[in-house]
Amino acid sequence: MTEFTEVLGEFENLVKRFNTTHALSGLSFRIYKGINGLIGPNGAGKTTTIKLSLGLIKADAGKAEVFGFDCWKESLQIRRKIGVLYEKVAYYDHLSGLEHLKLIAKLKGIPDPVAESKKVLGLVELEEEAYSRKIKGYSAGMRQRLGLAHALLGKPELVILDEPSSNLDPLGRARVIEIVNKLKKEEGFSFLISSHILPELERVCEHVVLMHKGKAIREGSLEQLLNEVAPQAFMIKAEPAAPLMKLLKAEECVKDVRLDEGYVYVVVEDSKLFKKRLPALVSKAEASLEEVKVAGRDLESLFKVAVLGD
């Protein structure tokens, strides 16, 4: 099992409200050296957490520290050590990609801005002809790559990627994941990656935080969390499904039942007991059982189990 010892960031009982919306409601988790995944559906509070860690918004309550610095009061010290790529990439569009990176490199105090800019542009594989093209002429994918280069500039101690592959095609997504893996292994970069596209995170993340409704509902190593989920969720295809679902809901060993993509998705507390009871329940519901399978050992299943059980 992976050991997480070096803590880069710590969040405790964070609360943030926007008018009547509770964006964060008692969020607690840690960021470790390595690749951290922040997983959750849209509206879970992932982007709010990222903004909060960079001092763009202030928590109503709770403690937020990155590298030992208070995220609101000492955000400048944090921003010196962090590179960030937002989902909504916005730069000075009248500059070229290379000019933009040179500007940021100067602000970061990098000794040779041109060399460093070209190095990160090479890392993200942005075509050389695009170096001198104005950013306003870039495609969404090129902007995303430039954003990644922007985040990697100057080898920051932590790189935050907010939905890094949202504007990329499947090949582009795979490439981002490759780059992240490579940078971690070869250059020792640490990442905090927020995404709702779970398969891509599964390939790189070591430490995972599952967020739902502004709270961390699970936290731990990916391996540990996946081991937790496997025996707990079942996918049943039965016809008709409704009477079976009604009976399942009444069972004590069942935590939650939901219809998901044609399957009755069941989260259980005691899988042995559930397996014993299932044939009787199917018979009682007068349903024909077409398929029963254990939910996959993947982040998507883990997420469904965690959210349904929350």
Partner: peptide, 15 residues
């Protein structure tokens, strides 16, 4: 700049 996201980018820089 706020609406387009540039303000967010600027405020995330070490400035």
């Amino acid at each position: 700049d706020y609406e387009q996201g540039l303000m967010q980018t600027l405020l995330s820089l070490p400035v």
